[in-house]
Design a binder for these strands. Structure first.
Lengths: 146, 146
DNA sequence: TAGCAGCATCAACTAGAATGAATATGGGCA
DNA sequence: TGCCCATATTCATTCTAGTTGATGCTGCTA
């Protein structure tokens, strides 16, 4: 497996994997490597192979060039600083899930509706989400741990 | 294809050159390429040739790897983001600031949990929220709307 | 069960990032 | 003037980032 290096420090691979988990297609399915690579190619005009993206995500390669970092940042809508190991990237990592959620029409809608609920109501919804997530996880297939 | 780029956009070479102009030795003399390269080598433990640094500064090379960007950022005491085009980072920074608005822990939690749900799951949750909101509205106070 | 389709994975190769040794340039000094 | 030192520049070479094409896996359909 990919070495996690020191505790607290997340590897580039982990950061990229997190993006795949959080940033989804309009139909809520995770993007495939091929989709992302293709989108990066079209957005930047530069080349970006699916295999290489997989290598980066799984930690077999960990030293991409500026161009590739830019392409990934653009596609996933995060600042390039996210891929580096400084204070800013930590903050981004924390907000990443919510950031992704707000960009997604479906989740944004849920969040906006939730604002009007009482604390009790929110708890109920939270439990519901847990239940559904559990069911979908069992059906959907094993994703690497979060 | 390196090109001086559009007005307003500064190239990587210009950014690096600026660092040389601004960041000086204790005796106020500009650093030489060799000094910087050596310092980067010693700070990071990785290799960094003077020739390559010169190539980056003069624009002959413009696509360094993550490793080299990190080394330069460390030596010149700038965030790695400095080397990237900030047009898009700015936009995303705004979005990050917007996140502060969703301060309510409960809502935030709901949004975060909802991220991984499928489209169907989101629909279900959305309906649930509607139902609860209606009930609470009836109890608590008149909430006008749909 | 075979056959297809989409995707992850692997190994072999290519391109270009990065290096090292050699050469040019300029400035100070005998 | 000629030499020397320091740094900039060039070029050939090495090494690794990045690509290509093949292979295997999983789920679906007939």
């Amino acid at each position: 497996m990919v070495a996690a290096a020191e505790p607290g420090k997340t590897t580039l691979a982990e950061k990229i994997d997190k993006l795949f988990q959080v940033v989804r297609r309009p139909d809520r399915e995770p993007y495939s490597h091929e989709e992302v690579a293709t989108a990066c190619r079209e957005a930047t005009g530069e080349s970006f192979s699916t295999t290489y993206l997989w290598q980066l995500r799984t930690g077999r390669r960990d030293n991409p060039t500026k161009r590739h970092l830019e392409a990934l940042a653009q596609f996933f809508q995060v600042p390039p600083a996210y891929f580096f190991d400084d204070a800013q990237s930590l903050k981004i990592a924390e907000e990443l899930a919510l950031l992704g959620a707000l960009r997604d029409a479906g989740v944004r809608d849920v969040a906006l509706r939730a604002v009007t609920l009482s604390a009790d109501g929110l708890d109920t919804i939270s439990d519901m989400i847990d239940a559904i997530a559990r069911r979908e996880a069992g059906r959907g297939g094993a994703r690497k741990g979060d």
